[in-house]
Design a protein around this nucleic acid. Structure first.
Lengths: 191, 191, 191, 191
DNA sequence: GATGAATGAGACTTCATTCAT
DNA sequence: CATGAATGAAGTCTCATTCAT
């Protein structure tokens, strides 16, 4: 994880905020600059283009979120509890997850080939983290599944889907915590 | 489902094709027109704006896909088999599903409030279809789950997630049929 | 005055109505057609272009108004009374006069050289009519002015100006009849 | 009168020039920019729309013309001489007056309600100035008229009308100075 | 004659990016 | 380093006009 300058982080945060309600093309550099309290030209001192800014911001956010999760679960022993903490984290950071999903969706539109490998790598990291925990659970005999990769797809897919539906329905249709326990319940070994 | 004119369908199809590789803002009306073999102004004879065109196209595609699924499963008796057919359909129409996910993501960016209710309704239809099948399965004792809504989120989330990962990894990481059976296996009653 | 076909007159009337509230570029042929209850193409059966339509309409209206005035004053003997009738006519047909002024202004924008000489001729007719009445008044000794042309400019300019101001101020600032008498009073011989 | 930036005035002047021969819809922003020696986008740095530009330009020109007149007549004592100076000014600035009349006519087409109150206010200013001079003349006993408002309509209407006819006839039909003296002659007290 | 679907030239406007200060 | 005035490429949308039926 490279060292980020203060102004870079300032710009990341502003941009990230704007993504809550709008998409890539509806966010203007001039707006990012104004909201950041800096000049338009200054943004270009730190990033070569709008596209690069968004990619860097995405990487930054993915890295930060990953480090936070890592630090939270490294003190936990139980693999199941680890999954629960990751899930709780998703629920608490709901909007961040959704924004990330949106941005990832969007970034792939820029044209698959130009995207920094780092974006993909960072997206992958989270998947691998869950998969490793599930494999740990299998080894420890607390998680029961034929395939760790399938279980990972199931876990991450269900959680993301739930977050999206929750957002679509303005939080009226779904009990996120219940969903989390539902998925964990499925992964837990049953004789 | 309203009656669509030939030209509308022509425009829908061209636009849909273009979405394979690009996003809303990277598709030009002039391009849609040229590829459709019609004049730019003609597009505006049928749709008041680019945004309306995309929304109408989305509704059309969701409706068509839904009707196709409905006709395929109505001759099937077993709820589990119905889910299997729906899943197979997703796998076969992989790119269409991904495009739909992308467009829905995008459409919500236009600003949630301006989106035609029909778009939301049509997105919901598929969810409800799966949920009803699951409930049928529960009644018939072939599906075992505490909550039909949770199971629906799990089924659709897992499948969509798998399709996305499959696409990200250019089909090298995942066996879609295996995933489908994996999810169905989870839903099937086990004593 | 050429013979106008029924449909031409129909189109003239619709177009004329639309000019009440809008200008040349804000009136669409499609709108004229729809309001006339005919097809868009039909308009082009009678006029080669929008510009020609407006020119023809202007000529038609100027001709009609002129004939009406002529028939009204030819039975009057007194030149002063003739001016009074012309003025009253202007006041009663206020909006028509204003529309004519607007259209004439506009028509000259099309590019002075393309305007049908007939438009100018017809505009001129009214001026000449007033001038002739004034000259008649001078001969009869009831109108006192050194120059009939100057008096005509004064009469027509004052009346048009009053109508415009009346319209600008939504009829709250001016008593049109008083103005008319005021101008006539000035023209009338005073020893 | 707000402070105008240099670029604004540059744009005003170019636009004003173009209005000599053409109307609102026939003048392109790109043309204004090119003739001004600036970029198209720059125009939009100073004005939000073409319509706003024209309105601002109109206000600017009316303000400038008014200030010029004010400064010219404030050193004059005689009301009649003031009217003469105003009239001479109109004659000398003939094309500007005609352009103003044209633009005002046009602006009211945009839709009466959207026009900046300032446009109307500035149009009114000139009328009021003339009216005040006439009232001054009445008080001083050098102008004889029953109604200052009617006299103002007469003065401004006659002058504007004369300018228009002069322009229509390419200066061949009218002696502007004679007209001015003619109107002034009418206003001057006669025992 | 009548129609209206189709057309495409063309105008406004936006906004990422540059660069002189 | 920071700035923001200036730019112009590019895209949406309009509407007069055409022409096959």
């Amino acid at each position: 994880m490279r060292k980020y300058k203060d102004k870079e982080i300032l710009i990341f945060n502003t941009t990230w905020e704007l993504f809550s309600e709008r998409g890539f093309h509806d966010i203007k550099i001039s707006e990012i600059a104004k909201l950041s309290g800096i000049g338009k030209g200054t943004v270009y001192e730190y990033f070569n283009s709008k596209e690069e800014l968004v990619q860097e911001m995405t990487i930054y956010n993915l890295e930060m979120a990953h480090e936070k999760i890592i630090s939270e679960i490294e003190i936990i022993d139980s693999p199941v509890e680890k999954l629960r903490v990751i899930g709780q984290n998703d629920i608490n950071r709901k909007m961040d997850i959704l924004k990330t999903l949106k941005i990832v969706q969007m970034i792939t539109d820029f044209s698959k080939n130009n995207i920094k490998k780092s974006v993909f790598e960072n997206i992958g990291k989270r998947f691998i983290l869950v998969q490793e925990i599930i494999e740990e659970g299998i080894r420890k005999g607390v998680i029961n599944t034929e395939s760790s990769i399938n279980a990972t797809i199931l876990y991450t897919g269900t959680m993301n889907n739930a977050l999206m539906i929750d957002n679509f329905t303005d939080g009226n249709a779904i009990n996120m915590n219940e969903i989390l326990e539902y998925v964990i319940g499925i992964l837990i070994k049953k004789s």
